[in-house]
C-alpha cells in the first residue's frame, strides 16, 4: 500500500515539473555551450578574438561608458584588429576639441566630378571594398540650367533682383536626380555640373531622432557619430536621412589587410561589422588631431574647404561672409553644416 502509494504522485504535476526543470537546465547548459562554441567559430578560432567578442557582447553604449570602460573597449578593439589585419592598429578615443564646431564648404562651380574624393574617403575610412562596395560620398552629374533674363527681377526676397539670390537661373530643381554612374573619358563635361553629397552633419539631425537605441548621436564639435557596436542595424536612420548619406553593411565587410588604414578612431573609421550603419564623419580621426579630412586634401581642384565655424578667420566663415552660399534641402530645417558656394 505504502509502496504503491509512493509511486503515485502526491500532487499531480510535481514529477513532471522536476523532469522539466532538469531537462531545461540540461538543455540550457547545452545551448549555452553551443552558443559559446558558435561564437568562437564565428569569429575565428583565435582565443583572444573569442574573448574580445564575448566581452563586446556585454559592452555598454559608448556614450554611457565610464572613462575606464571606454579605455577597456578601445584596448579590446586594438587587440582584435591588430590580430585580424596583421599590423599595429590604433583606436583613438579622443573627445571633441573645445570651442570647435566643424563646418564644410564645397565650391559647386569648381567641382569637375572626378570622384577623387570618393576614393580617397574609401582609402581613409576602411569601408568595405567590394560586396558590398560602400562609398560615403556620392557625386551626381546634373544638367546645367539656363539663364532666363525674364526672371531677372524675380529675386528672393521680392524686388531685390538677382543680387540677393534671384532665380533667373533655371535649374532642374532640388531633386538630386541625375547620373550616378557616369563614366566619360574625361571630366568635366560640357553643359553639366557635378553635385557631391555626403553627410551634412546637421545641427538638427533627423537620423539621430529616429534611432531607437540612440547609437547615433551628435558630438559637441557638431559631428554626428555612430557607436557601431551599439547599432542594431535597423536602418531607420538611412530612411530618415534626406541626403542619402548613410550606408549599411549588407554583408560581412571585405577590407583587404594591406589596404586597411591602421590609424582609426572608435567613432570614426575603425572597421565595421556586418549590419552596422556607417557614414561620413568629416574624418573624425584626422580632424580631432588637427588634420584636414581626406576628401579636402584629395580634391585636385581645391573645391573642398573645411574649418571651424566658431572662428571668424576660418576658411568656412570667410566663405560664408564673402561668397554666394546655398544649402541642400534647407527647407527641411535640418541645419546642415555643409555649404555649397559659388565664386
Amino acid at each position: 500500500m505504502a509502496d504503491t502509494n509512493s509511486k503515485i504522485p502526491d500532487q499531480p504535476g510535481e514529477k513532471d515539473n522536476g523532469t522539466n526543470r532538469r531537462d531545461f537546465l540540461k538543455e540550457t547548459g547545452l545551448s549555452v555551450a553551443a552558443l559559446t562554441g558558435a561564437a568562437t567559430l564565428l569569429t575565428g578560432s583565435q582565443e583572444a578574438e573569442a574573448r574580445v567578442t564575448w566581452a563586446e557582447w556585454f559592452q555598454k553604449s559608448y556614450r554611457l561608458m565610464t572613462n575606464e570602460e571606454q579605455k577597456d573597449a578601445i584596448a579590446r578593439l586594438e587587440e582584435r584588429h591588430s590580430q585580424e589585419f596583421g599590423k599595429k592598429v590604433t583606436v583613438d578615443g579622443s573627445p571633441a576639441m573645445k570651442d570647435v564646431l566643424f563646418g564644410y564648404a564645397l565650391n559647386i562651380k569648381k567641382c569637375i566630378g572626378c570622384r577623387t574624393c570618393v576614393h580617397a574617403c574609401v582609402k581613409e575610412n576602411n569601408q568595405s571594398r567590394y560586396n558590398p562596395e560602400l562609398q560615403w560620398i556620392r557625386v551626381i552629374k546634373m544638367e546645367k540650367g539656363e539663364f532666363l533674363a525674364a526672371n531677372m527681377d524675380k529675386g528672393y526676397p521680392k524686388d531685390y533682383g538677382i543680387e540677393v539670390g534671384g532665380n533667373a537661373y533655371e535649374n532642374a530643381g532640388v531633386t538630386l536626380e541625375g547620373e550616378h554612374y557616369y563614366q566619360p573619358e574625361t571630366v568635366p563635361e560640357k553643359d553639366y555640373f557635378y553635385f557631391p553629397i555626403q553627410c551634412m552633419q546637421c545641427e538638427k539631425p533627423p537620423c539621430v531622432k529616429v534611432c531607437p537605441v540612440r547609437s547615433t548621436y551628435r558630438e559637441p564639435d557638431g559631428i554626428v557619430v555612430i557607436d557601431y557596436n551599439w547599432c542594431i542595424g535597423c536602418r531607420m536612420c538611412i530612411s530618415a536621412c534626406p541626403y542619402w548619406a548613410r550606408r549599411s553593411n549588407w554583408g560581412e565587410p571585405n577590407l583587404p589587410a594591406e589596404e586597411m588604414n591602421p590609424k582609426t578612431h572608435y567613432l570614426g573609421n575603425r572597421p565595421r561589422m556586418n549590419g552596422a550603419t556607417e557614414k561620413c564623419t568629416f574624418c573624425l580621426q584626422r580632424v580631432r588631431n588637427g588634420r584636414y579630412p581626406a576628401c579636402v586634401e584629395a580634391c585636385p581642384v581645391g573645391a573642398r574647404k573645411f574649418g571651424n565655424l566658431l572662428d571668424p578667420d576660418s576658411e568656412v566663415r570667410k566663405i560664408l561672409a564673402r561668397k554666394g552660399v546655398f544649402r541642400l534641402k534647407a527647407e527641411l530645417n535640418t541645419y546642415p553644416k555643409f555649404f555649397y558656394f559659388i565664386d
Binding site: 566630378g113 541625375g178 563614366q183
Partner: peptide, 25 residues
C-alpha cells in the same frame, strides 16, 4: 582653366541592375 582629367571609376551597380541606362535622358 583646369585641364580635363579622367574620372575615377563609377560606383558598383546595385545587385541585379544590368546597366545604368535608366539614368540617361
Amino acid at each position: 582653366i583646369f585641364l580635363p582629367i579622367k574620372p575615377e571609376p563609377a560606383p558598383a551597380l546595385p545587385k541585379g541592375m544590368k546597366s545604368a541606362d535608366h539614368e540617361h535622358k
